[in-house]
Amino acid sequence: MLSKRVIACLDVRDGHLAKSVKFVNTQNIGDPVEKAHEYYIDGLDELVFYDITASSDKRNIMLDVVEAVASQVFIPLSVGGGVRSVGDATDLRLAGAEKINVNSAAVKRPELIDECSSAIGNQNVVLSMDIRKVEKSHEIPSGYEIVINGGRSPMGLDALAWALEGEKRGAGELVINSIDADGTKDGYEIGLTSMISQAVRIPVIASGGAGLPEHLYEVLTQGHADAALVASMVHYGDYRVSELKSYLHGQGLKMRMSW
């Protein structure tokens, strides 16, 4: 039986670790390579790096960060942020990323998912979705809409329909990121996660809103998520990764407890 995964997400801007609250007011909170190694030693199951560097001429800094992490952290490493082509994906893979996250560029040009999955394999393509709750409508029947540009641009695209399309086009995994819950520490959006997780046959990673260990338990059980993504609750030292895993294990979830 597979263990549930705890995944830490590190937002990186200009080579520094940043934490966003509702995608604005980002602040630098440390060295991503150091943090990654600290979490790895403490039992983290997987790492996600998100490049939020604004200017494209500084993008190569990210490749250096990925390379430095990959040479000392021996768990799956997923990288996203600004992946627009198979070339971007390949560059990150050569630097040491296992999985590639695609997001906005795939919303604008869905073929990107097909192209990446045939180039690097389905299992290595993660479709990351930023989602906001809206009124149910003819256009958005699930009541959840895909947004891009850090949540500023609604796309008129239904989140459930997009998840199914992403799976069909060859995504190997989905990240369900609730923009409403992101940074609030009030808990994951359970309804959204559960709805999508039960509709697809690929693993689902819940993202946005984790503040307490109970939130992880909730989304991994009621939310039917395969993995829970954490950020600020570990970055600021509120909880240790090992502490979260011990709690979930104590609640009866199968977790990897030996590392």
Binding site: L2, N122, R201
Partner: peptide, 16 residues
Amino acid sequence: RMDRPDLKVPHMGWNE
């Protein structure tokens, strides 16, 4: 075989 809806394929993640 993928005949159990609770088991996802590929088998992806940590296992004993």
